[in-house]
């Protein structure tokens, strides 16, 4: 095995297989947004604090700006685009709308992925558990009040 600066990788995103050649230095978020044109996941910082780029990698919640695309070779990725089926919002998405848990909507995709990860592990989280689950997702519009309410409602 030798180290390479460019590599062909295969990833599954929302059930679709993609094979692309990428620079080793390319961040996973840029691969998803720019190379695959899946622009639902966002970038809100450059230090891994804001969580707008959160995706599920083999079922685990990660920030896609904190890893390289080549690290995801062979992985299955879930992004916000995979939550609804055929245009029908899932329960969590609907709860976000019902409870006005989004204003500008920029943090929303990452927030939804964090909430998805939480609810898969814990179907009836407490308010404290919800806040802890989204502590890595910054929202500058809502003060989190309605986001917490929406996740509570979706859990029920």
């Amino acid at each position: 095995m030798e180290a390479v600066s460019r590599k062909t990788i295969t990833v599954g995103v929302n059930g679709e297989q993609y094979e692309r050649e990428v620079d080793a230095r390319r961040l996973l978020i840029h691969f998803i947004r720019d190379d695959l044109d899946l622009t639902g996941s966002h970038i809100g910082c450059d230090t891994g604090n804001c969580g707008a780029c959160s995706v599920l990698l083999d079922g685990t919640l990660v920030k896609s700006c904190m890893m390289l695309a080549v690290q995801a070779d062979g992985a299955k990725i879930e992004t916000v685009e995979g939550l609804a089926s055929e245009g029908e919002l899932n329960g969590l998405q609907q709860a976000f709308s019902d409870h006005h848990a989004l204003q500008c909507g920029y943090c929303t995709p990452g927030m939804l992925m964090s909430a998805t990860a939480l609810l898969r592990e814990n179907s009836s989280p407490s308010e404290e558990e919800i806040r802890k689950a989204i502590q890595g997702n910054i929202c500058r519009c809502t003060g989190y009040v309605n986001i917490v309410e929406a996740i509570k409602a979706a859990a029920q």
Partner: peptide
């Protein structure tokens, strides 16, 4: 009345179009 927000359906699906999404 607090009617459902029209903006939400696209935004909760990652189907909003922000400047950096335009290519």
């Amino acid at each position: 009345q607090s009617v459902p927000r029209k903006e939400d359906k696209r935004l909760v699906q990652g189907e909003g179009v922000f400047f950096d999404d335009v290519k």
